[in-house]
């Protein structure tokens, strides 16, 4: 068995341990921004594989799941739009299908005015540019650059006006 496989196994164990602590109903309750022991072990293992997540703020505990997506993606680094959409869908369901989700290339030109951001992290996966994952209640987001799926993806309840998206609460 290759070392890579072994490391993936370790990541899975950590992810399970971290996720097992959170019942789905508790997902929306506050979780300390500082990762608990199992989560940091996940982070260390994932970082060894070329994945790093800079957590800006979080009141929901979905980081270990985001690691899973990024780790799965870096084994094959040719499909950026698929990676972006898998981050978007994964975060949406991890957050309980009650928040809007925006994924945008971290160094992309954009502006936003969002209310109640419950998760804000930048995901670095080797072979891909860094992407920022925002999970929130409502607000306005404007893409000031290229609007292709390789640069951003979002889902939730919204009206889109060109490159500006108006999100409403679920």
């Amino acid at each position: 068995m290759s070392p890579i496989r072994t490391r993936i196994g370790a990541v899975v164990v950590s992810a399970v341990a971290a996720a097992g602590v959170l019942a789905p109903a508790q997902a929306a309750t506050a979780e300390p921004a500082a990762p608990a022991a199992p989560a940091s072990q996940t982070a260390a293992q994932a970082q060894a594989m070329g994945v790093k997540i800079d957590l800006a703020s979080a009141t929901i505990g979905i980081t270990s799941r985001i690691y899973d997506i990024a780790v799965a993606a870096i084994e094959r680094s040719q499909n950026r739009s698929g990676y972006v959409k898998s981050l978007m869908e994964g975060a949406f369901y991890d957050a309980g299908q009650t928040y809007n989700v925006m994924v945008v290339k971290a160094d992309h030109p954009y502006s936003y005015d969002l209310d109640n951001i419950v998760y804000d992290a930048t995901v670095h996966a080797s072979g891909y540019p860094a992407f920022r994952v925002l999970v929130f209640d409502s607000g306005v987001f404007t893409n000031e650059g290229d609007g292709g799926w390789i640069n951003w993806a979002f889902r939730g309840v919204f009206d889109r006006d060109g490159m500006t998206v108006h999100f409403r609460e679920f």
Binding site: A73, R76, Y83, K85
Partner: peptide, 10 residues
């Protein structure tokens, strides 16, 4: 999320 090769499926 299901990744097969370089393809990401939902």
């Amino acid at each position: 999320n299901v990744r097969w090769g370089s393809i990401n499926y939902g």
